[in-house]
Design a protein around this nucleic acid. Structure first.
Lengths: 409, 409
DNA sequence: CGAGATCTGGTAAGCGCTTACCGCTGTGGC
DNA sequence: GCCACAGCGGTAAGCGCTTACCAGATCTCG
């Protein structure tokens, strides 16, 4: 038996450890001693290796139960090189107040500071509220739990241009990373992904990473056709998300193609540049109103939160939604159905996005090559009221149009 | 220099490690070799110990930068006995659909199953939406980040009666735990808290744990007096949270005392037992309506989510809010101001609750005895519309009444 | 200019766990 | 009855890092 210099065995709590209050948790040595076996036997029983003799197994299990032993994760991780932790990184404004804008030179300085947005106090704590990200993370957690993994969550500030270091630090605390929108630059991503498995969400798959997103084309096409043909709208505006968001770009592209096909006019110039936040959308909408130019008949927003901001400003300005201007979103966050009018939007399977991301990551951590490097989950149109539809007679006041069935038949 | 059996030094990536795709991250041995120093020197430079010679420091820093070295957290944790991770546990329904009820024998079986709640499809994904817990966690994360800690988040199912094991497992992955409402039974708490520092949120401080909550008394007193004296309501109902929630009990107690003092009638019997969820509150409200008994003039809800459910059902049943029945909440979650009518509620400093919890936990992890074992953060009344007030002329449509100033002057 | 004090870098032990390897015991086949 | 062999438990190495301890170099001051 190994005995340390001060006379105690390895793992035995030292005298000075803690006075009464906190006692150190038991180690595998404590269990081995209590069971009268070696630490190897304890470990084998715990990990189901090599089929130990029933008597040995019993003694160990009894000792484990009695001491309430659970192996220390750090020691285990060091040994098996698996932490059973995945890191999740979200880029979000950490400081209170409205988010900094995406690069948008046409927005006068000050427009985003607190003073400039006082009128939008209604969204002051928007960044505190549940967003798309959080719901995705909930899905990641569900899937992770099934594999005994936990989530290590970290936010990087929207203005943090040295996110690389912080993400790398997280990487060394986990077995793999799930990165939300816009967390790393492509070259940082390439570099990091050679050291640790990485999944991006709503990004672009690269040689060494996989991406999980949703089928923007199908959903947006259904929405566009609904607006263009069912409602007959001929002028539309697209309020964008971050300029470099692949999701926002894909949605715009599909919408533009459909509008063109229907001979409708689509506004989507620089003055339609939002940032996925309600506060940002509110400012954009106000500028549009102030410009005196006529508004399009319908404003298609890159996401639900933007739609929230648009509707808020329109309503305050006495513009009837959807009577004068219809508004639509994308995502179907829970708040969408609690708005007045209820928001017509395209539902993404938000939780599944997270679950899928974890499962793909898990397979990469296990050393497999993922079969598919770019996964798009299905979307579907939810017609509620803000597009101009009358609330249906369905129970929840939602008319569901499966985009596929509706359009492909 | 130590050399392993196969000829490579410790830490040197073995040949078979990974083929091209993933390469193992550099270890401290790689850095030491690149810098031409020993691993001890590298460690000392990294941790700022013993003031190394400038030249040594330079060489190490250069090598670290070049290799992009970041120490492995598991190895570091094992050595310094600090993981720089705090575990956060939330009890929530993990499966889709409405939550299981708190023990409430008067609710007929089936009332909570999907079929029984079909009419409340509006809240089907409520458990997916932002809740109080998430906002608190955001605060924890903020504070943790300042200390280089990360959050390990885990949910336990609302029906999981063996939560102890799962929480213990989390404990061994972290340096301390923050437990939300109702995660552990008091005896489990006592046992676990002797091994690891624990903070409860909205619970009760015990000899070995600290608790962070908010000042229910002051907030509820302000709300009660506003309803009783400013509005002159003489009949009230209190829709409770979980039966064993200290928050819910404290709020009821204060409300009852105030009502008694004003000679008003307060209903709070078993048929007023909710569960902090909108879906639960909706069912309760429907039963109250079905009972045919007259409703009180105002329904005071244990939290905002409950108020959401109450308002939803009242509105569907043609009851005018606040004209016929006023409704109030507690918490001030972001959705509160987006409801129609806007919800009058008592604001808790939700984010600060989390930040405070972390700070206290951090001090315990650092081996200090917290000065205060039971911390209550200030609350304040926010009068919006659902209590019967007219929307004020203030910018955000919110009349703020500092509970202290209003009542103590 | 030499002895002690000071400073700096290296060596090695140890954190708590897993597992390769070794040796002992008991079994079956000849 | 003996030996090969399977089965099981123990010993010890090693995961990547920090740090106590030691030894050599440098400095200080009598």
């Amino acid at each position: 038996m190994t005995v340390l210099a001060d006379g105690r065995e390895p793992g035995e709590p030292s005298q000075a450890a803690d006075q009464g209050d906190d006692i150190a948790p038991p180690t595998i040595y404590d269990v081995a001693r209590a069971a009268g076996v070696s630490i190897a036997s304890v470990s084998r029983v715990l990990n189901g290796r090599r089929n130990p003799r029933p008597e040995t197994r019993d003694r160990v299990q009894r000792a484990v139960a009695e001491l309430g032993f659970v192996p220390d994760s750090a020691a285990r991780a060091l040994s098996v090189r698996l932490k059973e932790v995945v890191g999740v990184v979200v880029r979000r404004p950490l400081t209170a107040g409205p988010p900094a804008p995406a690069p948008a030179p046409w927005v006068p300085a000050g427009a985003w500071d607190t003073a400039g947005l006082l009128g939008y106090d209604a969204f002051a704590d928007e960044t505190e509220s549940l967003q798309f990200h959080d719901m995705v993370n909930r899905g990641v957690e569900r899937a992770a739990q099934r594999r005994g993994f936990d989530l290590l969550v970290r936010s990087v500030d929207i203005t943090d241009h040295d996110a690389g270091r912080r993400v790398l630090a997280l990487a060394r605390k986990s077995d793999g990373l799930i990165l939300h929108d816009r967390v790393l630059e492509p070259d940082q991503l390439d570099q990091l992904s050679r050291q640790v498995p990485i999944i991006t969400l709503a990004g672009i798959a690269r040689p060494t990473t996989a991406n999980v997103g949703s089928d923007n084309e199908t959903g947006m096409r259904a929405l566009a056709r609904h607006l263009l043909y069912d409602h007959g709208y001929t002028t539309l505006g697209y309020l964008r998300g971050y300029a470099d968001s692949p999701d926002s770009q894909a949605r715009l592209k599909t919408l533009a193609a459909e509008a063109r096909g229907a001979g409708a006019v689509l506004f989507s110039g620089p003055q339609w540049q939002g940032n996925y936040y309600a506060a940002g959308a509110a400012v954009v909408t106000e500028r549009l109103l102030a410009s005196g130019l006529p508004l399009p008949r319908v404003i298609v927003c890159a996401n639900d939160q933007s739609a929230l901001g648009v509707m808020y400003v329109l309503r305050r300005s006495g513009v009837d939604v959807p009577g004068q201007v219809a508004v639509t979103g994308f995502d179907d966050i829970p708040m969408a159905r609690h708005l007045h009018p209820q928001l017509t939007t395209v539902r993404q399977p938000i939780g599944e996005l997270g679950e899928t991301a974890f499962e793909v990551l898990y397979s990469m951590i296990s050393g497999e090559q993922p079969a598919e490097r770019d996964i798009a989950l299905p979307t579907r149109l939810l017609c509620r009221e803000s597009c101009g539809c009358q609330p249906g007679a369905t129970l929840a006041g939602v008319t569901e149009l499966s985009s596929v069935r509706h359009l492909r038949s």
